[in-house]
């Protein structure tokens, strides 16, 4: 009796998550219909985001937020991947316990800081630094990209570190026993062995960077224009949605659902790929 109840309960919980996923997709898809019919594929390449005077219609395009999202994520990844790999390698292979342990804990704590704190810190402290060193007016693509990088580095470094730590000791020792240097062991044994986990961490971080709203809303400038230089302000999909949701109606609202659908699909593909890599690793190991 108890067993059956428990079974049904677990079954329900498990299927619920699946229905939620499908349900959210269906809602986004339904509400996006109006914009999809109105603009079609041109939506992806239209720069304008202008409501008519009467708020009944207008021209809405996803080009600027899509480009803004992609560029800020690209900057973040370009900075974060090498640094996170460096941290992970340092923690697994180079640092002594006396240094490695506190750094490891600090990394995990950094990963737990809410994104609004990164946003505030970025706006009040970091943006002026960017302004005085690189130029621009502080907020913009570069500032958002760098702070995004700082946000995802701890996460990426922690997962990569765990993946590298799974390299069997005896495998490393046998590379050293062949006359390999520490660098060669890292490059030829540890990196290939933990490839699955490392790629997984990168893809999960990518998903997080794409969807990050709060910190980017503070830092990207929220301007509906294609950036001419790396320090120019622009906007991103989550930021545009968060800023406009309160006032939007009808076609604009539908266009925002369209944007949300695009972000949903892209993130879904990215997370599924990460999942695939993690699973692939389990099967092999």
């Amino acid at each position: 009796m108890g067993g059956k109840l428990f079974r049904n309960f677990s079954f329900l919980s498990a299927t619920l998550s699946f229905f939620l996923l499908v349900g959210i997709f269906a809602i986004l898809f339904t509400y996006a219909q109006e914009a999809m019919h109105e603009f079609g594929f041109d939506f992806l390449f239209t720069e304008a985001w202008e409501a008519d005077e009467d708020d009944e219609g207008g021209i809405f395009g996803g080009y600027v937020p899509i480009i803004g999202t992609l560029l800020s994520t690209l900057i973040a990844m370009a900075i974060a991947v090498p640094l996170a790999m460096g941290i992970a390698i340092f923690l697994t292979e180079i640092a002594s316990d006396a240094i490695g342990k506190p750094v490891s804990i600090a990394i995990e704590l950094l990963a737990a800081i809410p994104s609004i704190i990164y946003g505030m810190w970025g706006l009040f402290y970091f943006a002026p630094i960017v302004q005085s060193t690189v130029g621009g007016n502080g907020v913009g693509l570069l500032t958002a990209g760098i702070v995004l990088a700082i946000m995802i580095i701890p996460f990426m470094a922690a997962i990569s570190r765990d993946a590298m730590n799974t390299t069997p000791l005896v495998l490393k020792e046998s590379a050293y026993a062949m006359g390999a240097t520490k660098f060669e062991v890292i490059k030829d044994v540890i990196m290939p062995y933990s490839k699955g986990g490392i790629i997984g961490s990168i893809i999960l971080a990518l998903g997080r960077a794409l969807g990050e709203t709060m910190a980017v809303a503070f830092l990207i400038g929220s301007v509906m224009s294609i950036p001419g230089s790396i320090t120019d302000p622009t906007t991103s999909i989550p930021v545009l949605l968060a800023n406009n949701f309160a006032e939007a109606q009808d076609l604009e609202m539908s266009s925002m659902y369209f944007l949300a659908l695009i972000l949903f699909v892209v993130s879904f593909i990215i997370i599924s790929t990460a999942k695939f890599y993690f699973l692939g690793r389990k099967v092999k190991g």
């Binding site: 069997p168 005896v170 495998l171 020792e173 026993a177 062949m178 006359g179 044994v189 062995y193 490839k195």
Partner: peptide
């Protein structure tokens, strides 16, 4: 490194590197 090239070692468990058979021996 020079010492370990003259005094090789085989471990309890087989430890092939995650690469091809050729590359393992050529490593």
């Amino acid at each position: 490194i020079k010492l370990r090239q003259q005094v090789g070692m085989i471990f309890q468990k087989p430890t092939p590197f995650p690469m091809s058979i050729f590359d393992n021996v050529a490593y």
